[in-house]
Write a protein that binds this DNA or RNA. Structure first.
Lengths: 212, 212
DNA sequence: CACAAAATATGACCAACGGTCATTAATTTT
DNA sequence: AAAATTAATGACCGTTGGTCATATTTTGTG
């Protein structure tokens, strides 16, 4: 009964090839300016075929985001491993997020799209649902770091790990969003500071809020 | 020479009427699902006329955002006035932002659009350029509160007011973005916490980071 | 008032794009 | 080899943002 499995493999491969093509197109033109015809051409498939593998344009873009989120997840895992104390782990996770932002700006944009749009999670089989699971697993690493920090005394004990993790996630995403979209006009032109300055500065603030 | 002035007034009035109509449409359907034809119908004008007053759909939506930002600005002014110490002013400004988020969810959505999209500020006469100025004036109030707090000793002196203000702005926007878009699915369903919990919690974190 | 000039407004029209579906092609099963 | 199932195609459709030649209204002039 190897046929069904082979077909499954081929289907998965084709799906991946489409995402590969979609990345080339979306990363070059951006989500708004990229068209499904572009992707079809790049993938050397007809447009209709794309819709056999992905529900719609958003679903396809979320598939790209999912790849990015998996990268981020592994960066978080590395970050947690390399440090001893909880607060160091926590800070390291934050640094990993910034590293992700700088090293994979295109994936970061896909993440921003995910974070700033009202995604439809209703369909359990959609890519969106997968993103949700992957996103939770990623956040869980941050929560765990904070828990460890409370236990080892490096983080003050009167905080709530889950709320703190969500706060940190939202905060940092917000800062990186500004850094990404408003650097030229607001930061540089109005206040003569670099995105990196604000990012670094934000870390100090957070550190100050958490340490015991 | 009253004619030119009257015409100018009438032009301004018409512009406002269009924004009024646009609010009704955009607020009901959201930015993506609202069409320029909808707005034209609601305004009882032809579509072509809309384009005499606004460059494009985004410009019209930004005009709505500008109204929202002016409301926020006045809330900030009130917030600053009512408090004595710098840290109280700063906290009060934060509370005002949350009040804005709750009381004017539609304007808040317009603000989120502005914050999460790559707006074209090139044209000096566009609504986008006005938004920039208004946004800066609003942020300035936050900066000023922090400066006062450093002077009166309620905020620790080794922070940078501008960077802090930008950080707080980005952080809070990030949190409110999550609260707004991901409440149902992530916060409630996954972690059983309310958006309000996270917002309040975030305030405590920030307070902790700033106080001397 | 009559007529020209300027300013406004109109809506038919266009191009672009996301998405669909009847048809065709390829593969597997019988 | 024929039937049945699965996969792929691309012409086509509806919607929408935006335009522009034309029409209407208002203002200026003799």
């Amino acid at each position: 009964m190897g046929i069904a499995e082979r077909r499954e493999r081929e289907k998965e491969k084709r799906k991946n090839d489409i995402i590969d093509a979609a990345e080339r197109v979306f990363f070059e033109k951006g989500h708004e300016n990229a068209t499904m015809d572009d992707v079809a051409n790049e993938a050397e498939l007809s447009k209709g075929t794309l819709y056999l593998y992905f529900k719609n344009k958003e679903d396809l873009y979320l598939a790209i985001h999912l790849r990015g989120n998996k990268i981020l997840h592994s960066l978080f895992q590395k970050a947690v491993k390399n440090k001893k104390t909880g607060i160091e782990k926590t800070r390291s996770v934050g640094k990993a997020y910034v590293e992700f932002f700088k090293k994979y700006p295109n994936y970061f944009n896909a993440m921003l799209y995910y974070e700033s749009h009202d995604i439809d999670f209703a369909d359990q089989d959609s890519v969106a649902a997968e993103c949700l699971i992957e996103g939770k697993a990623t956040l869980e690493l941050l929560i765990e770091s904070i828990v460890i920090g409370i236990k080892d005394g490096s983080i003050r004990s009167n905080i709530d790990p889950v709320k703190t993790a969500i706060s940190l996630w939202g905060q940092t995403t917000g800062i990186l969003q500004i850094a990404s979209l408003k650097e030229k006009i607001i930061l540089s032109q109005y206040f003569s500071i670099s995105a990196q300055d604000v990012i670094d500065y934000n870390f100090d603030l957070i550190y100050h809020a958490l340490k015991s």
